[in-house]
Design a protein around this nucleic acid. Structure first.
Lengths: 205, 205
DNA sequence: ACCTGAACACCGTTCAAGT
DNA sequence: ACCTGAACACCGTTCAAGT
């Protein structure tokens, strides 16, 4: 009888995530989908958090930035942000899985790295690029997580009335807010460019 | 024997959160800290998520913005963001509790509302204010959640080596990144101001 | 190297019944 | 109005033992 690799386990976990969601992604359900006992999973991964980190890595790795031809560094940053947004939305509860993995420092580093690289291509120094990439990353993940929860709630027919989030109660949920956020970010980055150049280590010795 | 109010339950939950953390905030631990059976909690709250939402509301309500005298609307926005940041950091796992409550649309609306009000005071229309408040809110919560996890991990002596997050591996963890993000946000908002004024409903009919 | 079997120490939630 | 007692249907994880 065929034995399972670490990748088989991650693939099975992604399948459960995709069509049943994170609450159904238990070690027991995962094991039985592979025809194994739950305890067998602990040969491949030390614990569930580590397994979820591998799942998060895979979700992030599937991001496919589409950069408009002839676009400048802003186009590159925007393309990376949108690709990450889409990758997170591609799996049920994808944003939440990546969010918690990132918060715990267990993986999904690629997401931040790609954003930082795109920002660097605009001529910012590495420290600035990494710091503002973090800002953008947290916006993307927070916003996407929020959108995804609401999309899923709506598709389940929950919250049929009046439960609209206070922060955007007049607007159709989340529509355009994501792109607006990215635009705001890029405008801020452009506006602070010269300050970073002239006096970035002003109040450090 | 004295019976407990809903507020007593929330206060006890906050106490457990503060000195034992979210994983220890179980219905069973909470009940026993009140001298009750777990099932008694279900008279006060329909389920654990709703209870956590009440806890999140309380955490957010304790935000105390300190606005520098003589400051303009930017000072107001900055003060609200910092107050929220501090309020989240004031309780163990505070950012995570508020983050999940917000994502589920169960509460903590005050946070977004306060940011939106501060932004409105800069002369932006309501739709713009709400949309960009959402952007800022997701950054604040994402960033704070990340900082808090790392602060707690460090204080437990975990991650003693090399586990530095890729997005800021050269920088001391989180220092200044939060304020830098707020500054970036304000710069972006200022830069897009005239566009919002002149053609905010350009591609709507 | 990879997995089973059985157990441990928990969870959130329901519900009839008490006072 | 507020709570108990008992149960239901689960969890993640460990570990000796098998092949």
């Amino acid at each position: 009888m065929p034995r399972r690799s670490r990748d088989d386990v991650v693939a099975a976990a992604l399948a459960i995530l995709d069509d049943r969601g994170l609450p159904e992604l238990t070690m027991r359900n995962l094991a039985s989908s592979l025809g194994l006992q739950p305890s067998a999973l602990y040969w491949h991964f030390p614990n569930k958090q580590t397994l979820l980190a591998a799942v998060a890595d895979e979700i992030v790795a599937r991001a496919r930035p589409v950069r408009p031809p002839g676009s400048d560094w802003r186009g590159a940053v925007r393309a990376e942000a949108i690709a990450l947004h889409d990758a997170l939305l591609a799996f049920t509860d994808g944003a939440e899985v990546v969010s918690s993995t990132l918060a715990l420092g267990l993986g999904a580093d690629d997401a931040g790295r790609r954003l930082a690289d795109a920002i660097s291509s605009g001529g910012f120094d590495d420290e600035t690029a990494e710091q503002v990439a973090e800002v953008l990353l947290h916006f993307v993940i927070g916003q996407t997580s929020y959108e995804q929860q609401r999309l899923q709630a709506d598709s389940l027919g929950v919250l049929p009335e009046a439960a609209a989030p206070a922060v955007l109660h007049g607007v159709s949920a989340g529509t355009g807010a994501f792109e607006a956020g990215v635009t705001l970010f890029l405008a801020g980055l452009e506006a602070t460019r010269e300050h970073d150049r002239s006096g970035s280590s002003r109040h450090e010795k």
